[in-house]
Write a protein that binds this DNA or RNA. Sequence first.
DNA 1: GTCTATACGGCGATAGAC
DNA 2: GTCTATCGCCGTATAGAC
Lengths: 190, 190
Amino acid sequence: MAALKSSKSGKRERLVEAALELAYRDGFQAASIADIAKEADVPVGNVYYYFKTRDQIGDAVIDARMAQFESLRGRLEKLATPKERLVAFIDMTVGNQETVAARGCPFGSLAAEFLKLGGHLAGKARPMLADPLEWMEAQFRQMGVGDAAFACAVHLEAGLRGVSLLTQCTGDPKLMEIEAAQLRAWLDTL
Amino acid sequence: MAALKSSKSGKRERLVEAALELAYRDGFQAASIADIAKEADVPVGNVYYYFKTRDQIGDAVIDARMAQFESLRGRLEKLATPKERLVAFIDMTVGNQETVAARGCPFGSLAAEFLKLGGHLAGKARPMLADPLEWMEAQFRQMGVGDAAFACAVHLEAGLRGVSLLTQCTGDPKLMEIEAAQLRAWLDTL
DNA sequence: GTCTATACGGCGATAGAC
DNA sequence: GTCTATCGCCGTATAGAC
């Protein structure tokens, strides 16, 4: 599929990476085309060769984030038990604590912004949190909690996304550890 | 303090209310001065008589939200026990489920946007989530959980803010009830 | 105090040379 | 494919009539 675009210069990839970086740091709306082009070291006017409209950059940003979750999911699937996979998800989130304190949840903060933006991008942003929720539900189901699987998934993801927001708001990375410890303990009671 | 401004027309109040409404619905950045003025039924140019800069409208928006929390806190203080107060806080959040599904958490979504906006407004937005956290910690301390009070506060607020984000993302108000039930049950174990 | 008109800048997007 | 130059619009903010 990469072969459909003949360019080997990797400019499109650099633009997407730059846009994701800036959208995560300052918000997608705050990042102008010029900002993104500068960050990617690509001449401004050239951007419109790769993207017909600014919204399409937003599409690519969401796709890039979703690809990161897919990659993570792939790695987690190699673990033996569903509980190990859920704990690894928690650990991985906590491992990001410094970045979360500075910029917020990589998925939640982007999703929140796109949701408020409305239009086409709002719908496209939904899977950023909904797909992890479904994945967690599947893990809990495999753990044998039965009908409680969905509620458990809601509890786990809510705790993680919520504490990420609190961490960003207070600027204190320790909050991530505090909540993670409680969530792990709760997992052990199931 | 209201007497410092002689105007009785209430235009400033209408502007702030309109700005809060639009900031909550579409995001503060998306709401232009013209949009706010139109929503408040105030001529555009007149806005700059009440606010020297756009940022000052942001200040007023944050103040208005904070005042809502102060009002809620005042009502909750009338309840007899700390656990009743915490449960009432949960109930009140769930009672907002339809609005949360459509627009997100009234405090969290605003705080998240202002935090990414950076500058002066980012710092001013922090108490929107930090003050409730402190209040919750005080309640837990009164419940006699000792050193766990802070961790409990983190767990409760993270759960509520997190499920609000999930609710907005999925569009399903039921998630609020599901998580609230789990948080109430957890409260009962303390 | 209230409002109109407008200055000014930055943005997304386009045209077209190379 | 790559890049420069520029258009047109809409945003904040101001000047000044009433």
